[in-house]
Write a protein that binds this DNA or RNA. Structure first.
Lengths: 145, 145
DNA sequence: CTTGAAGCTCTAGTCGCTAGAGAGATTAGC
DNA sequence: GCTAATCTCTCTAGCGACTAGAGCTTCAAG
């Protein structure tokens, strides 16, 4: 029997918090582990590897749904990997899109902040621009999400 | 008595959706409007202006809490505008921070996607890199939020 | 007068956790 | 062996900013 460890240990080794691990179990990303006599979760090496995969994917901004798919793929090494590539490519595109929209925002905010040399709200550029969309340089933004 | 209009009209003029307007009312961003005999909300010009302020601020990524403060300020034009400026400046900084972190992500994702020339999951770079943090170029990222 | 659109309230769901209550399990030191 | 501190357990509720839907009433046009 391989040596097993508690959820606290798994948390430390993986960099996830304990409640997060339980949450991943709840939503089906982590399998139900064995339990000790006292009903505590007992994990093994493979759990740690899976959890690291999840964590690294999250750091890269993948959604839990994407990660579910990627994990499934990683369990079937003989299948073609187009799907994995597609998921990554789609995600890359959405990241680029977010960057573009945030840069538009940045420009507009920088103009607002830069222009406010007044001292009363009455003629504060920040408030003024927020009040009147016409005074802002760019067209409509979609929500930043 | 100024002419008033329904929530549907307000939605159209402001670009907000009807349920969103009701939500803003619920959380105290929009004041309780008068009601018609049949209990329908009746809005006036000032509501439209306020809602446009909110919407424009949301497009610029301000939180509802920030917007609450900005609205309060805009109602007191004689006060100094440092607070408004601070809010905008803080927000600008957080936008810049998000851009920086997304750009790190972008680089890493682009490398992943670019390198996957194989056809089986078994040697797919995407899966490989996700499995093993050591294979990824950059250090730890904070969560992207 | 009828029909269909628009309005109303209320509840619940989204995403990815996080926080807290109140209980039981385990471990370290004495 | 006992006690105290630390983990761990389950369960529920909350975050932000909405969105969706059920089941009802009101309104405007023909």
């Amino acid at each position: 029997m391989a040596k097993s460890f508690t959820i606290g240990r798994l948390a430390k080794e993986s960099g996830c918090k304990v409640p997060t691990i339980r949450y991943y179990e709840q939503v089906g990303l982590m399998p139900l582990p064995d339990r000790s006599e006292g009903n505590q979760r007992l994990y093994e090496r493979r759990h740690l590897e899976r959890l690291r995969f999840i964590r690294h994917s999250r750091e890269l901004g993948f959604t839990l749904d994407d990660i579910r798919d990627l994990l499934l793929l990683s369990e079937h090494p003989e299948q073609p990997c187009e799907t994995a590539d597609d998921i990554a490519r789609r995600h890359l595109e959405s990241v680029r899109d977010r960057i573009r929209r945030l840069q538009l925002l940045e420009g507009e905010l920088a103009r607002m902040v830069g222009q406010c040399g007044q001292h009363k709200v009455a003629n504060c550029r920040v408030i003024e621009i927020l009040s009147d969309h016409g005074k802002c340089q760019s067209g409509d933004h979609p929500p930043i999400a």
